[in-house]
Nucleic acid binder design. Structure first.
Lengths: 220, 220
DNA sequence: AGCATTTTGCGCTGATCTGCGCTAAATCAG
DNA sequence: CTGATTTAGCGCAGATCAGCGCAAAATGCT
């Protein structure tokens, strides 16, 4: 039974935009935040019937970047009329932080590369307002990292405080003060009770995230 | 010149969702947060060609609630497949805080009423996941009010600290501590240099928001 | 004029946080 | 065994913040 409005028209009888999902896939590469570009743009796709936005995002990450098992977060909708020369397209922007190792396969494909995520000259070169998407993504990820230790689980467990702080420095673009960082994060981590093996100097204590879910598992 | 893809198809040849905008119009009524319902639902509309989402939101607020000159904020997209029995519809949810006086005309229409915004029994009675939209809106507005003095300009200027604190109490659902509130907010307000007239007791100092834009003007 | 009322302002205490210098601890290299 | 290295841990000073009690100030009422 197809629904019709008071004019006898179905939903399909009205003009509708195309809906795309675009994802700023961020990672840490060479000590700084980087964004994945495929053919000079963010990976994305048009929404298919019956899909949720998250389904579409996951499909585009798998198909365009070989990335699976992640949990992209919705940012917001970009809808500037002049945004897409092809026509009326809305973009629902997402962000996902992915360990750089998981992007290795994608990066062997022609046209797939990493670019510094907080480099203005990179952002202005992106089509379809995607520079704004990346900027919004960087801001969102930095806020998450200020609040929680490695919330996107880029580090394999267990890890040391130095590794964690190194990661946070790369994400935030500034180095947090050692003691302040340690006090805040230790309260949000679970000690393994063990230390590192080998290496000179006093062995480091090792930690896991509070969540019981393994790092690579999808989140709720 | 109509764009076609590598299959010779235009954007319109592919199935697309309808895109609706729904706005949680929040206000303060009788000392607490309230949400506007029109016919038992949030005001909304389908997106028309050539419109931005903000255009559509403003149009629906004008047509369904008689509200003009505001600046709704985008929350996020709701896309649960079973959300809308009419068919494939995405809803881009927004929130707007509006002085209750500006809703007076709308409230004289049949079927338009205010309901407590943080009352779970109200939220579960809403169609199309709109309870979740209202909950997300309440959370967003409360975060804004924790950070800034009356960011949605519900108070006419100038206002007293007691009026401001009363408004914030209504929005937050809890009364902030007088001195803590005063220290934080005074730093974010502009003193008029004048005090209230009449009334018993020591006259109150009066304040304006930092922004130079009049309260009813739209924001950037 | 005195009192009640209301707001402003602030001194004070205790709590919390940041940043830093420095030592102890636990390794490995020589 | 000694020294170098690296991390852990912490004492401390200074800064900041929250909350409270209370008095001063500025009105209107009687």
């Amino acid at each position: 039974m197809v629904w019709r409005d008071e004019h006898g028209k179905r939903l399909e009888d009205y003009p509708r935009p195309s809906v795309a999902v675009d994802t700023a896939v961020l990672t840490v590469d060479d000590g700084r935040l980087a964004v994945l570009l495929a053919g000079g743009a963010l990976p994305g796709t048009f929404l298919h019937p019956g899909e949720t936005l998250a389904d579409a995002v996951l499909r585009s990450l798998r198909d365009k970047a070989g990335v699976v098992g992640r949990s992209p977060r919705q940012l917001r909708v970009f809808d500037k009329p002049s945004r897409d020369p092809r026509g009326w397209v809305l973009s629902v922007a997402h962000v996902d932080m992915v360990p750089v190792a998981e992007l290795a396969a994608a990066l062997t494909h022609g046209g797939v590369r990493l670019a510094p995520a907080d480099d203005a000259s990179v952002l202005v070169g992106l089509p379809y307002e995607q520079g704004e998407i990346v900027a919004a993504a960087v801001e969102a990820v930095r806020a998450e990292y200020r609040a929680e230790p490695d919330p996107s689980a880029l580090l394999d467990e267990p890890f040391t405080l130095a590794e964690l702080r190194g990661l946070h420095t790369a994400v935030l673009g500034e180095e947090p003060m050692r003691d302040t960082f340690r006090r805040y994060m230790e309260a949000r981590l679970k000690s393994t009770g063990e230390t590192t093996d080998g290496g000179r100097g006093r062995p480091s204590r090792t930690w896991r995230r509070m969540s019981a879910i393994p790092a690579a598992a999808t989140r709720g």
